[in-house]
Nucleic acid binder design. Structure first.
Lengths: 249, 249
DNA sequence: GGGAGTAATTGACCTAACTCAATTATTTAC
DNA sequence: GTAAATAATTGAGTTAGGTCAATTACTCCC
């Protein structure tokens, strides 16, 4: 596999630059087709888009882009796990989002002006990612305006979901933020209990929720002691979400 | 002015229901035309949209909608000041955004499914707001696909800006969140100093930044004592943003 | 313009959450 | 498979920021 390495940071492995490699994976293609940004595309347009894209296979801690870099591509994940984060002047690393297979990321930069990445993106384990040129997608939408409807729905949904993330962060205490975060991970929300898998290692969930790893650990230990969650590594079992919500009044 | 009052809450004045009233205000129309969601529309389409819309004139503490209500309209502000907030189970009120003339709000709900408002919206002073039926805007875009481009740019921008808001909230200490917030209010960012007006009363800025009003007051007093900001009511003068950033390492 | 209600400030006190440190698990890399 | 690196947990001590309370300053009405 032909890869070249460019710039490096003291926090992560160097940025990965892919040499063209066909995206012919059956499962990957299927996943792509089921994403709202691509599901409306006809076979020819999708094929054309894929031809202009490149496949990346970043490993653990490998950077895909860094904040403030010009954004010429956006990404679709077919396997693995990634995270978005920012670094402030004192080098503190703040996790903003986790990315799973089937997700798109940096896609909002398609219409940013100037198009620069708003954060860093790194793989948390070996992943496979399709790197799509912004221009290719834009051109396609422009030449086929009916595609814009689906994109519009996607972008609006993304804005709503960021708004929701923001809402959690206005909760003033760490315990309640964590509870809100866990409830959101449940497939049916607060409706019924279930098992959830933390999408990030605990120390990064802590960072995402603006608390220290020690605080995260203590809160979780306390919820466990009170029979509110059962913990097995990064899998949590929540039998009664309503009770969790009650104690977070 | 013909208005009817419906449901009420213990937090705000009742929701305002407008009876049709033409939107023929020169300045208002001009403001609307300069918003990305409307600037591309031709005169006829814009006129048609306005005809289907209603004008509201909410007063202080008047509610425009409440969270979880079905969202049939979105809004454009021509004068005044509003805020978006959520209420949690214990009745704590968390401010999520401030809205100024020239802004649109609840517009992301156009493509939500199901379309329900994600928060409350209330006027902070007498304001004038255009209430646009979601369906009217959707129909117009669908019949005129080239309009979708501008909408797409707007939605993407909105998603980026929510992401940025989220980023501030991952900052762990109250002082640094406040500093980041102030820098963002400066017209040129950290580039050069200037005067900023808080878009919300101080107690609501505190709520927006997940801190208590007392904490806000103390931090601001401290920044003032250190010559970092000069304070005059809700107007703050920041002469040296770089110094502010430095101390927030 | 005066009174009611709300917002802002300040002090004293307290506690949630941070820091530092040491130990034990768990991953990752060779 | 084993060593090295990283993540998680737990304890002890400290502090930022929350809480409660009292005072002052605004703002919005009538």
């Amino acid at each position: 596999m032909a890869l070249t390495q460019t710039a490096e940071t003291r926090y992560s492995k160097p940025i990965l630059v892919a040499v063209n490699k066909p995206f012919d994976d059956e499962d990957g293609l299927k996943a792509l087709r089921s994403h709202p940004l691509f599901s409306e595309l006809n076979g020819k347009d999708l094929q054309h888009l894929i031809q202009q894209s490149r496949r990346l296979r970043p490993g653990h801690h490998q950077l895909l882009y860094r904040q403030d870099m010009p954004a010429h591509h956006f990404f679709f994940v077919t396997s693995g796990r990634l995270r978005l984060y920012r670094l402030d002047s004192s080098g503190i690393d703040r996790t903003l989002d986790s990315i799973a297979p089937g997700d798109c990321f940096a896609e909002v930069m398609i219409y940013a002006d100037p198009p620069r990445y708003a954060c860093y993106a790194e793989a948390l384990k070996s992943s496979e990612v399709l790197m799509i040129p912004v221009k290719a997608y834009q051109d396609m939408i422009e030449s086929n305006p009916k595609y814009a409807q689906a994109a519009l729905r996607h972008y609006a949904k993304r804005a709503v979901s960021r708004f929701h993330d923001l809402e959690i962060m206005t909760v003033q205490n760490a315990r309640d933020r964590l509870i809100r975060y866990l409830i959101d991970l449940l497939p049916n929300g607060a409706e019924e209990g279930g098992e959830v898998e933390l999408p990030l290692p605990k120390c990064l969930v802590a960072s995402r929720l603006a608390m220290q790893p020690e605080t995260f650990s203590r809160i979780l230990a306390d919820l466990k002691a009170n029979g509110l969650v059962r913990v097995n590594r990064s899998r949590l079992f929540i039998s009664d979400p309503q009770r969790l919500i009650e104690i977070s009044q």
